[in-house]
Amino acid sequence: MLNQTQLWAIFDGTVITVEIAIVAIILGAFFGVIVALGRLSKNKVANAVSWFYIWFFRGTPLLLQLFIIYFAIPIIYLDSTGMTFNINPMVGAFIAFSLNSTAYLAEIIRAAIESIDSGQMEAAKALGMSYRQAMTKIVIPQTFKRLVAPVGNEFIMLLKDTSLVSTIALFDLLRTVKTMASSDGNWIYYVYAAAIYLFLTTIIQVAFDKIEKKLGVYERQGN
């Protein structure tokens, strides 16, 4: 069984894992809306910038993005200014995971907005609403229910992908148990890790199911 030190180490690793996933999903959702609106915009610059953003962050490995932020940027900074500059690994992880999830969530949000019947925008405009009013009051609120399932997906992926941060000097859940396993020569630690991952993803799955039901209340037909 685990001794107290090990228990706390696993707890700390779990906290790091959860923290990164939560920060990334929240910031990703916020900036994802902006990038999605950029993709839908008729403004060519906004459109091109968002297209390029998604192209880059979806098209390169998350691990590479993590390395760029944690390793490459300090070196570039040192070369160009002659000063040293270190990124706190936790901050580096927050940034990399948020930038990455922004790209994925932007595409999810864009698709959800486009799935809303164009008659909704027309009706809003015919009632005198501006594009902005129609988007914020009519179209985007209708996307919430459709967003829950894919955002839940992204959240679960993020939670598991946080194991990549072991490469930038962070002891997340997986790295913590791996260290224990190799020092004791005991595989049981991996079972603990699997149980914790499953416990966390179960919470997400159940919570998102509930949210989806709640948001879909207006779609229920009949008596």
Binding site: D117, A123, G128
Partner: peptide
């Protein structure tokens, strides 16, 4: 926009806002 609010429109497919 102001001029258009003088024109009410009713659509073939109603286009009510389903979330409201």
């Amino acid at each position: 926009q102001t001029l258009c609010t003088d024109l009410g429109m009713v659509f073939q497919n109603f286009n009510l806002f389903p979330h409201l």
